[in-house]
Design a protein around this nucleic acid. Structure first.
Length: 260
DNA sequence: CCATCATGGATAT
DNA sequence: TATCCCTGATGGC
């Protein structure tokens, strides 16, 4: 789940449930006890997402959460004992939210938040994002586009599923050096992100196909129907075999017949 | 029961 | 490029 859309969806939900409320914070697992205590019973001002990062802003400080590969939130509508692995529990009114397995959950200063903004590339889910920064970053890199799309300093929020899908939609060979891409291809990558990420936020799933093609609503699509290549065996377009390629340290799925 | 794998990323070399 | 960290689901024995 945790590519950029997941974090933006969480920010939206948690903003709705918790902003303006005084929160009860705890760390049943114990590894965030100090931070939870520091901000316990403070009023949450707002929740925001930047790329794959989640920020809970209080007047007294900010809680930064990065889910990594394993992080997960679970939501309850009635009180219940948290499992032992819960790093952070947030409670207010009749909502209980438990966070397990994050790469990071810590209290940040405003300076640290600024530094994060500095080091991340433009986030296609941010209405203010500047596509020129994305174009410029690609023009500077000779590494393969497949690896470059995972670099959060180039564009914030893309993960292993979206990168495979974006490359397929653009019919791009993942091994192409980023700076060799024609302007039209770079343009298309950005436009596809701006088009698809909000679908991810809305549905809380990565969907890059057109549900209409299957004659059913997005919520009813099977997993292999929601994507063009990721973890698929055959290509929807040419029926050729989908191949796996190690790229940027992760497994990239692509169709050699269609891409390139 | 245990090994493997996963939508991520920091750090060491 | 390799190693490590975070957790949980799954499949083989």
């Amino acid at each position: 789940m945790p590519e950029g859309h997941t974090l933006h969806r969480l920010a939206r939900d948690h903003q709705r449930w918790f902003a303006g409320h005084v929160l009860s914070l705890s760390s049943p697992q114990g590894r965030f006890s100090e931070g939870a205590r520091a901000l316990d019973q403070c009023e949450l001002v707002r929740v925001e997402a930047i790329g794959k990062h989640l920020l809970y802003r209080f007047r007294e400080g900010t809680i930064h959460v990065h889910l990594g590969l394993f992080g997960k939130f679970r939501v309850w509508r009635e009180a219940r004992e948290p499992r032992n692995s819960v790093r952070l529990r947030i409670a207010a009114g009749d909502r209980w939210v438990d966070l397990t397995g994050p790469t990071d959950c810590s209290v940040w200063s405003d300076e640290q938040v600024d530094a994060l903004r500095q080091r991340l590339g433009p986030d296609p889910l941010d209405p203010q994002a500047d596509p020129a920064r994305f174009q410029a970053a690609l023009a500077r890199r000779r590494r393969p586009i497949g690896a470059v799309l995972l670099d959060q300093a180039v564009v914030a929020g893309v993960g292993n599923v979206y990168r495979a899908e974006l490359l397929f939609l653009g019919r791009l060979d993942p091994r192409t050096p980023a700076r060799d891409l024609p302007a039209a291809a770079v343009d298309r990558l950005w436009r596809d992100m701006v088009r698809l990420f909000p679908v991810g936020v809305r549905t809380n799933r990565i969907i890059t196909t057109d549900p209409g093609d299957f004659g059913k609503p997005a919520s009813r699509l099977r997993r292999d129907e929601r994507v063009w290549v990721y973890k698929r065996r055959t290509c929807r377009v040419c029926d050729g075999a989908i191949e796996r390629l190690e790229s940027g340290g992760r497994t990239l799925y692509w169709c050699p017949g269609c891409q390139g």
